[in-house]
Each structure stands twice: as structure tokens, then as C-alpha cells.
């Protein structure tokens, strides 16, 4: 992996194929299109549904600690296992799953570079509809990393001071307020625009046309030189519902090695609905 700060968190499709069936390596598919896993997945992978399994079913929140322990344990994942996540749409929700595993302190989490589409387009990579058999284990969270999560108070502080890099990873039309959400999306907001002081750095600037991440040199040029992210500052990334920002959070924290990067999972569907907060357009 080309000069990333933490290259160990990224695995190639070939690596995944070579390690299929290894008992301590657990594959997890998380897709935007929640039917994709059932249509075909990597042999041995379990599928997590971001809508029903990766968030609290009642209140707007991430999965509770107890629910996370049950989800991981029921999927046969032990705290010492290597968890490799992959999914559609360039690993958006796979990255969200990665972030959630890190919030709950899982040590060894990785993303499959190039995501599901790269695997799909490589002739030697199998897919199956066979149900993955798992042996449930007891999973205990021993360490919480809640500093990976940004709350709206911190976002407002970031907006009003210059202490943070505030990174809006949505499409340019969402940033300017021309649209509130991409077409057809049900999660939306009362207002369009962006948090004052945020820089528009669409998530897609981090990836190549084959879905893999750009090199560290290219990423540094984009984020630091062209878009003005200051690597010495703390950083908060946001999008609409927190999945595209997980992708950019991954890039900033693990590929570029920034020290304190938070994902604002409330994102625009929280901020754009708040009464009385400042908004910028265009």
C-alpha cells in the first residue's frame, strides 16, 4: 500500500481471496443497497444491514454498546479477530461499520480496497448466495473510543473558532444548498447549505476510477495543498447521515495519519434541522 500512515487497515482483494476461510479473519459486507448481500457475497462473509442493525432502532443514535456486542457476537466475531469490511458505493457504509467497530474499541479492523465492485469485476473472485454459517461467541467491549465521534456542540465550536478543520464531504450541490439531499433519498433536512467555515471536499476526491484509494501523495496534495486542511489541527468530517463522512474520516485518520479526526454522524440531517444555528449557502 503506497505510503499510507497506517497501511495495515487496508487490504487488497487478492489478500482477501488468499485468506478466505481463515477462522480468525471475519468478512463483513455492509451495503447502501441492503439487498446486494443477498444477491451475492464473498464466501464466508456476513451481511450487516445499516438501516436495521448498525443504528439504534428507536432513537436517532449509533448502536448501543449492548446491541453492538450482540451483533458482533452473533456474527461469530471475537474481539481478537481481524474484521475486514467491504460494501457497495465505494465502501460508504463499510467505512461507517469500520468507524463503529473502532468506536467500540475493536483492535483489528480493515477495509477491502476497491470495495465490492472491484471484487465483482475481477474474474477470479467468487460470489455466492450460500448462507454463511456462524458460531455465535460472547463479545465484550472493553474499550470505548468516543473521541472518534463529534457532536453538534463541537461542530458549532469548530464553526465559530479556527481550532478545527471542518470538512463537508457531500456533493457540491448539497454543499451550496442547491439540493438538500441526493435525488430519491428519504433522510433529509429542513434547510440546505453547509456549516459556516466548512470546506467542501467531496468524498469522491479520495478515490480512483476503479474504486481504490488514491496514493498518499495524491491525497496529501488534495487535502492539504488544494483544500487547505491543516494536518496540525483537529478535524471533524460530516455529510448527510454520516456514512460518506466515515469514508473521508478513514482517509484523514488512517491513510493521511491525522491525529484527532472525528466523524459527525448526526451530519446534515441533524444540523440542517436545528432551530437557530447559522447556515451558509453557495
Amino acid at each position: 500500500m503506497p505510503n499510507y500512515a497506517h497501511p495495515e487497515v487496508l487490504v487488497a482483494t487478492d489478500w482477501v481471496k488468499e485468506n478466505l476461510g481463515q477462522p480468525a479473519i471475519k468478512l463483513v459486507e455492509v451495503d447502501v443497497d441492503t439487498r446486494a448481500y443477498d444477491a451475492g457475497h464473498i464466501p464466508g462473509a456476513v451481511g450487516f444491514n445499516w438501516q436495521t442493525q448498525l443504528q439504534d432502532p428507536l432513537r436517532r443514535d449509533i448502536l448501543s454498546r449492548e446491541a453492538f456486542e450482540k451483533l458482533a457476537g452473533d456474527a461469530g466475531i471475537a474481539p481478537t479477530d481481524t474484521v475486514v469490511l467491504y460494501g457497495d458505493n465505494n465502501n460508504w457504509f463499510a467505512a461507517y461499520g469500520f468507524w463503529l467497530f473502532k468506536v467500540y474499541g475493536h483492535a483489528d479492523v480493515r477495509l477491502m480496497n476497491g470495495s465490492r465492485v472491484k471484487w465483482l469485476n475481477e474474474p477470479d473472485k467468487p460470489l455466492t448466495t450460500a448462507k454463511t454459517s456462524v458460531t455465535p461467541v460472547a463479545y465484550k467491549v472493553t474499550r470505548l473510543n468516543l473521541d472518534l465521534r463529534a457532536y453538534v456542540t463541537q461542530v458549532l465550536e469548530a464553526s465559530q473558532t479556527a481550532k478545527f478543520n471542518l470538512v463537508d464531504v457531500r456533493s457540491p450541490d448539497e454543499f451550496t444548498g442547491k439540493v438538500i439531499a441526493p435525488p430519491g433519498m428519504s433522510e433529509t433536512a429542513q434547510r440546505g447549505g453547509h456549516v459556516p467555515g466548512a470546506a467542501s471536499i467531496p468524498w469522491s476526491l479520495a478515490v480512483n476510477s476503479d474504486g481504490t484509494f488514491k496514493t498518499a501523495e495524491e491525497l496529501r496534495a488534495t487535502y492539504f495543498d488544494q483544500k487547505g486542511v491543516d494536518p496540525k489541527k483537529d478535524t471533524i468530517a460530516y455529510c448527510r447521515i454520516g456514512e460518506r463522512s466515515s469514508h473521508s474520516w478513514f482517509v484523514l485518520k488512517y491513510l493521511l495519519g491525522l491525529q484527532n479526526v472525528k466523524n459527525y454522524d448526526g451530519s446534515w440531517t441533524e444540523y440542517g434541522n436545528l432551530v437557530g444555528v447559522p447556515i451558509e449557502k453557495a
Binding site: 447502501v32 443497497d33 439487498r35 446486494a36 444477491a39 451475492g40 457475497h41 457497495d88 458505493n89 465505494n90 465490492r116 465492485v117 465483482l120 469485476n121 467468487p126 460470489l127 455466492t128 448466495t129 457531500r170 456533493s171 448539497e174 441526493p182 435525488p183 430519491g184 433519498m185 467531496p202 468524498w203 469522491s204 478515490v207 480512483n208 476510477s209 476503479d210 474504486g211 460518506r244
Partner: peptide, 29 residues
Amino acid sequence: LDVVSDELCPAPGLGDGSINLAKTHAKAQ
């Protein structure tokens, strides 16, 4: 029929959701 949602926040070159889902069916089954 399989109906897939169209454009979310697409990146160039990723391919289209309907093509990828059809390829998935052809590969997995």
C-alpha cells in the same frame, strides 16, 4: 424485476447500480 435506486452521490467510473446488481446475480448464481 429488480428495481435499484439510481444516483446517490456517484463517483466517476464506479459503474451503475443496475449493472453491478445484474453482474452479482450472474456471478453468484
